[in-house]
Structure formats: C-alpha cells, structure tokens
Design a binder for these strands. Structure first.
Lengths: 226, 226
DNA sequence: ACCAATTTTACAAAACCATGACAACTAAAC
DNA sequence: GTTTAGTTGTCATGGTTTTGTAAAATTGGT
C-alpha cells in the first residue's frame, strides 16, 4: 500500500492523521518539523506528503518549494488553517498539488488523498513504458528488451532516459542532467553526460552515428525525438 | 481591463459574480446556460471564464472539454458545489485551470482570478507559439516541425525568429538584430545577419527566392509577414 | 582484489558562425 | 529608360566552439 509522510508539528494532529490513514490501510511515516520532514521525504521517497503550512522554522511553503527544487515528483497536499486564504494561491504557486483547510472531516481528507494518489498514479504509469523502435523500456522496473532479448542499461542510463522522456521532445541541457540525475551535491564534468549519452546510443540506436531517437541539440544538450 | 465571461444558470449567483468583478474593474460578460456560454466564449474570446459545473443540459465539464477541443487557450475556472469532491479532480482532467468550491468568499474568488490571470499572462507574454504556413515553431522549447518532421534550427536562428515575431510585422533593422541577438559587446558585420536570414529562409520558406514570410525591407532590415 | 559502473582525459570530428568578395538587385536621379 | 550609388543575396573559406568517443583512471560494491 502507499506510504504517506505526515509533516506536522502538533503531536495530537499528527497522531490523529497517522491513525486515520493507517486505519485506511496506508503506511504512514511522520516528522515533527520541516527540516526532518524534508530529510525523510528525500530518504524514504513516500508516495504522498501531507504538509502542515504553519510550522516553526522551516514552514510548509519552504519545505514544498525545496522539494520541488530537488526535482522530486512526490505529490504534496498542504494542510492550511482557516482564514489563510491567500495561502492557497501561494501554496499552489509553490508547487503543491492540493490542499485542505483545517478543520476538515476525515472523509474529506481521505477523499482528497485518494483522488490525488489516483491522479499521480495515472501520470506515473504513463511514463513508465517507453518504446523506441523495437526496443521496449520499462522505466519503473528498469528493464529494457529488444524483442525477447534483454538489453542491459545501467542505473544512470535509465535515469537519463527518464529525464529525456519526461521532457517530451524538448531539449534537456547538460546542466539539467547533472542537477536531476546526479543531484545538486555532485559536480561531474558536463563531458560525463556526453559519455552516458554515447553509451545509451550504442545500446538503443540501430545506427549510433546518425541517431534516430536521441538527438543532440547543439549548444544546449540532447532531446528525445518523439 | 480583462474581460471575464461568467457562465452560471442561477441568476442571483450570476449577478453577484458580475457585480463583484465589475467592482474590481473587470469587464464582465454573462451567459445563463452552457450552450450560449460556449457560443459566447468562442465569439467574444474573453480573457477568463468562470464556469459553473452544475447546469442543466450542457454542464460545466462538457463546456470545458468542448472549449479545449476547439483549441481555445482561454483559462477556465470551475465553480463547484461543496461535496462534489471528485469533481475537482475530474475538472482539472477536463482541462480547467483552477476551481473554487461554493460557498466561497469574495476575497478568495478574486485572489484566484488574479492568480490565474497572472499565470496565463506570463505564459502568453513569452510568445512561444508561432506558425508559418505548415511549419510550427515553439520558441520556448526550441522546437520546429513541418507536419511530424522536425525542422532543425540553430540557436541564433531561433533568437532571430523570436525578435522578428515580437516585432509583429514591423521591420527589424540589422543593428537591432546585432544588439538583441548578439548582445551589446559583440560586433559582427551586418552581413552576418543576412547570412542567418538566408538560412532561415532556406529552412522555412517553400520558395526561398521569393519568400512568403521573411520579407526584406530595403534600406532597413527584415520583417516577418503576419 | 576483482569487476562493473562511472568519471576523467584527450584528441578527432562536426556544427556553427563570421568574413569578405562579388553578383544581383533596388531606388532614385538623370 | 538608363545610369549609378547603394543595398542585399549567396558562396567559399577559415576560425572557433561544441560534441563524439575511445581509452585510461577512479570509484564502489562484493
């Protein structure tokens, strides 16, 4: 079942939410402040995050935009207090997927959670399957096959393919590859990106010298031809 | 000021919305059912549409998806009744840009309207889409296609096209090309501009010798024929 | 220590761009 | 209508930047 991370500083609310969701069959994780919540989100990659807006130090907005900056796709639902109307707009600007207003009923929260999970699940499933000519790629399972024969791709190669596929035909810069695939801490040369592209082409293209799928965009990076 | 079309079957709500928005300085148009609302939307091309979901005959969802089918980019905000929680998700699926839940406060509605208008305005100002005959150009994504076939343009060519397009049919001087596309530091020959124009014509015009789109304005520069 | 994956390095190849020469063209004066 | 001065089209060329990729070096796990 899906795992839901609850980031909420008030203990009673936190446990109430956890109990409610657990009773529904979800697995719950909790964090009592923004910072540890953020850390947990990155480490555990939950399927959904319930995020209280009003928290000391790192508030919900900050956590949310930080999550987005780290290119995480995890759906975020904000918990806002009544009267913070402007927060809603702000919240959606900051990259949240939905919000509920306290006080809310159990039914409403559950309905929203279900709806949001369904929404992102559909989106996610759409992007797991990828077909480049006779090669089929399952990004979720990290499996690629040509006919019956398995084609071996490394983790980095799958990650790069996913980014290319998500860009849907748009060029992806080398910097973006490094940010998303490698993360913000590491700084390999941009040359490294080229090497991985080369090996992807060697594995996926029937004629790697004039690639059909992975095109280079001079001065920018690469794109996946749809 | 922006024009807002209100499609709402209940008269009190309709006039209340119109009054509120008019007081804020927006120009309002109204329609009392889905069908006439759709017609009005197509004829008047408002800047935003407030659309009640619950209406007899053609309901909000139907209007919305019909609008999208007719390739309209106009932002749509749905008005949904409380308890129709599922509607929210469905509404966004159907192509709406936002929604509010009845009952809502004036402040909330106005905040949303402002936010949505701001959002689409920013997107529109970017001037990304361009169509020259059978060639479609997305300046933001740096993608150009003729039918399904990609048309390869270089970075300079995209930059020059953007300038031409932003000038909206007005001639653009060579000096301005150099200033904007090359920047104020670099000073290539004005001849260079011609070369890039030539390659743009070679790629975009069906008969580059008598160009349909990129006209030269003798003694001045070039312009994009709208 | 071994092996696979990853990163760096280095050099060759390709793409892109600027230039200048000259032909073709335009506009206006004659 | 011709002439002429100025403007634009286009080509070949060479320089610069960017990319391809093989091979060597490094990393990390078992």
């Amino acid at each position: 079942m899906e795992r839901i991370l609850i980031i909420e500083d008030e203990a009673p609310m936190r446990t109430a939410l956890a109990d409610l969701l657990t009773a529904e069959g979800y697995r719950t994780l909790t964090a009592a402040d923004g910072e540890s919540g953020l850390k947990r989100a990155l480490a555990e990659k939950p399927d959904l995050i319930l995020l209280d807006v009003m928290m000391p130090k790192l508030d919900g907005f900050a956590v949310c935009s930080e999550l987005r900056r780290l290119a995480h796709e995890v759906p975020v639902m904000l918990l806002t207090a009544k009267g913070q109307i402007e927060d809603r707009v702000h919240g959606l600007d900051v990259g949240a997927d939905d919000y509920v207003i306290k006080p809310f009923s159990s039914e409403e929260l559950l309905a929203r959670v279900r709806a949001l999970l369904r929404r992102v699940e559909r989106k996610a499933r759409a992007l797991t399957q990828l077909k480049l000519g006779e090669i089929e790629i399952d990004l979720a399972r990290q499996i690629a096959t040509r006919g019956r024969q398995p084609v071996h791709l490394t983790a980095k190669e799958f990650a790069m393919l996913r980014l290319l596929a998500e860009a849907a035909g748009e060029p992806v810069s080398r910097e973006r590859f490094l940010d998303v695939v490698w993360g913000y801490g590491a700084f390999p040369t941009t040359r490294t990106v080229d090497n991985h592209i080369a090996s992807l082409r060697a594995k996926l293209e029937s004629d790697p010298d004039s690639p059909r799928w992975i095109k280079t965009v001079h001065g920018v990076g690469y794109k996946l031809e749809p």
